[in-house]
Design a protein around this nucleic acid. Structure first.
Lengths: 278, 278
DNA sequence: ATACGGCATCTCAAGATATGAGACATAGTT
DNA sequence: AACTATGTCTCATATCTTGAGATGCCGTAT
């Protein structure tokens, strides 16, 4: 629970405090004053001031011109862009994602599993959709939602088990899968169908359909999904939409060098990986 | 020259070293080993090891599974996404940018001026274009290129002067504007025309057309541009393409609440800002 | 105008904390 | 099997961070 990073028992006070400042600016409001920072981090304002000064010099944070509060700096955007550069399929995914948004008329997402959570890498909105606040870069629990379940479904069983143990299965709506058994059954269905249906597990009124993306090696490296209000993604439209999502997912996978033939026994592949870890 | 950050004379050794690690991973290769890091930063491997350990715990960097080398972590993507979230027009820009790419058949970009350099925030490629390596998140000199000159052109004169003093006017090709007089004349033309032409100032064979984006207040907050090989963006096609770029820029500006009427005297507005700073 | 309060900035002595030499461990190579 | 290069760990030392508090700054209320 307390520390899921296996490695390095090291502590470096200044550094941890500084990273704490960045993390706080990311999670709590977008702008915080010096005092707010020092209070929430339980640091002396003097200490905070010094750290903030250095972070600002390096452009990791910046001072708002209006109110003098601090917010994350554009250097972080630079670093962040570089951080995902090695996910070379992301670039290719964009066009497919775009097409998916157009064809379904819903918002399309590209996600990966990172540190046991779903990380949203990219988003495309259909032109007419009501604009929703950006969720790119945000993290969500993996045990609910179309993308999350898709990603978990093709993960070695043990990984899923550990994840459940460390993060739990928090309920967000009355449909959220909250027991390991429910989750296991849910993931089995995803593997069987080839796509995942959210079923308002994360938020009431929000429906979502996900499908896996495989690279040349057959590994599931990402998931794409569409999300929209339940009054548009209805029970009856769902099968057609799911087909579209899967179709685009297949195309993208093919684009990444994946050949369906190799996939005759998906669950087997999963088990193999499990063996390795075991 | 040495320090263009006005504020904070503070030094915190550990922190600066740690940020140095992140910056090095961003600029030099995407993956570096412990020894490579410590050598380039002139740090003892023991010290580096400790810092790297903490950075990894916080997911600011991660270890490649293959070779055990370090690269930037996905936490930085998270922070980076948040860092640009307050640029609320970016979201709106995406659709316009997309349309620009389609209509011109070239790659469209969205850029801002940050710390005297051009920062690429967003990119859209026309479907058929040859895929180019991503430049989103990267920085480029502001004194050349369509986007750079557009952004500078609507900046107070003094800012431009300071920028030239601190960063110089490095030549990248034989067309690069390398004297303050050339630059001033170039920027004047941009204001006059309403768009900027790159004229292979940054890279031989690469042509680029930029136009300014204004928000509700009339301030130029960003620039959009298209870029393509000179054999496609030819002398004769240029006027038509420029019109398209300007057209989309106008639409986007309008979308951000900008009313052309207010703009009767653009240069005046610029001077006003100059006054404030003076 | 003036006093007040909140917040940012700065100084400096004290000692907690980062440092780096070097030992040890591990992996890949000849 | 010995070698080399790299990664991991320990510990005494003194450097560097820390935080109390003083000062400065700005806006608001009196």
């Amino acid at each position: 629970m307390e520390n899921n990073q296996k490695s390095s028992p090291y502590k470096v006070q200044v550094l941890e405090r500084s990273l704490g400042i960045l993390e706080l600016l990311c999670s709590d409001g977008p702008e915080l004053s010096l005092i707010e920072l020092s209070e929430r981090l339980q640091l002396h304002k003097s200490t905070t001031h010094r750290l903030v000064g250095v972070l600002e010099q390096h452009r990791f944070i910046e001072k708002s011109l209006n109110n003098g509060k601090y917010r994350l700096g554009l250097k972080l955007f630079e670093l962040g862009s570089k951080a995902i550069a090695h996910l070379d399929w992301r670039e290719k995914a964009r066009h497919h994602l775009q097409r998916l948004a157009f064809e379904t008329g819903e918002t399309a997402h590209l996600c990966i599993l990172d540190d046991g959570e779903v990380l949203y890498l990219e988003k495309f909105e259909a032109p007419r959709t009501v604009r929703v606040p950006s969720i790119v870069g945000r993290r969500y629990p993996a045990h609910c939602g179309g993308a999350g379940k898709t990603l978990l479904a093709f993960q070695p069983e043990e990984e899923v088990g550990e994840l459940v143990k460390s993060r739990g299965l928090k309920a967000y709506t009355r449909n959220t899968l909250t027991t390991p058994a429910q989750l296991r059954e849910g993931l089995r269905r995803v593997r069987e169908q080839g796509y995942a249906v959210d079923n308002e597990e994360f938020e009431e009124g929000l429906e979502c359909i996900g499908a896996p993306i495989r690279d040349y090696s057959g590994r599931v490296v990402a998931a794409i999904s569409i999300a929209g209000p339940t009054f548009r993604i209805t029970e009856e439209k769902l099968p057609v939409l799911a087909l579209t999502v899967m179709e685009v997912a297949r195309e993208l996978s093919a684009d990444l060098g994946y050949h369906e033939v190799e996939a005759s026994k998906e669950p087997a592949a999963v088990d193999e990986e499990a063996q390795v870890t075991a």
